[in-house]
Amino acid sequence: MAGRGRLTEIYFGPQHPGAPGNIGFKLLLDGERVVKAEAIPGFLHRGFEKMMENRTWEMNVVLSYRFCVEDPDPLEIAYSMALEKIHRVDIPENAKYLRMIQAEFSRIASHLFWSHFIGGSVGLRTPAYWAVAAREEILKWFARLSGHRVYHNISVPGGVRYPLPDSFVEDTLRVADFVEERVRDVEAALLGNKVFKDRTKGLGKLTAREALELGATGPVLRATGLPYDLRRANPYLNYGKVGFDIPTGSAGDSYDRSMVRFREIYESLRIIRESVKRIDPEAPLRVKLPLTAPPGEGVARVETARGEYMIHIVSTGGRKPYRVRLRSMSMPLLTTVIEYIVSREEVTIADFPVLLASMDPCTPDLDR
Rank of each mutant, 00 (worst) to 15 (best):
M1I: 04
A2V: 12
R4H: 11
E9S: 06
I10L: 13
P14E: 03
P14H: 11
Q15A: 07
H16I: 07
P20S: 08
P20L: 10
I23L: 09
G24C: 14
L27Q: 02
D30G: 07
G31V: 01
G31A: 04
R33G: 08
A37W: 09
E38R: 15
G42H: 12
H45N: 04
R46E: 00
F48I: 09
E49V: 03
M51Y: 06
T56G: 13
R66E: 00
R66Q: 12
C68E: 10
C68K: 13
D71I: 00
M81Y: 02
A82E: 01
A103T: 07
E104L: 12
I108A: 01
A109K: 13
G119H: 06
G123M: 12
G123L: 09
W130D: 04
V132K: 06
A133T: 08
A134Q: 13
R135H: 09
L139W: 14
K140F: 11
W141R: 10
F142L: 14
A143W: 11
R144Q: 05
Y151L: 13
H152W: 07
I154F: 11
S155P: 04
P157K: 13
R161E: 12
R161L: 15
Y162A: 04
P165I: 08
D166F: 07
D171Q: 07
D177E: 14
E180M: 12
E181M: 14
E181D: 09
D185L: 15
E187V: 02
L190C: 03
L191E: 03
K194A: 08
V195H: 05
K197E: 07
D198Q: 13
K205C: 02
L206F: 10
T207D: 02
A208D: 02
A211C: 05
V220C: 13
L221R: 09
R222Y: 03
A223L: 07
T224H: 05
P227F: 10
D229C: 06
D229A: 08
L230Y: 05
R232N: 03
Y239R: 12
G240Y: 13
K241F: 05
S250L: 15
G252H: 12
D253R: 06
R257L: 11
M259S: 15
V260L: 06
F262I: 03
F262N: 06
I265Y: 05
I265N: 04
S268Q: 10
I271H: 09
R273F: 04
E274G: 05
R278K: 15
I279E: 02
P281R: 14
A283C: 03
L291T: 02
T292L: 09
A293H: 06
G296S: 10
Y309C: 10
M310L: 09
H312C: 01
V314C: 00
T316I: 04
R319L: 15
Y322A: 10
V324P: 04
L326Q: 09
R327H: 14
P332N: 05
L334Q: 05
L334R: 11
T335C: 02
E339Q: 15
Y340M: 00
F352M: 01
P353L: 09
S358K: 10
T363D: 02
P364R: 11
D365M: 03
D365N: 15
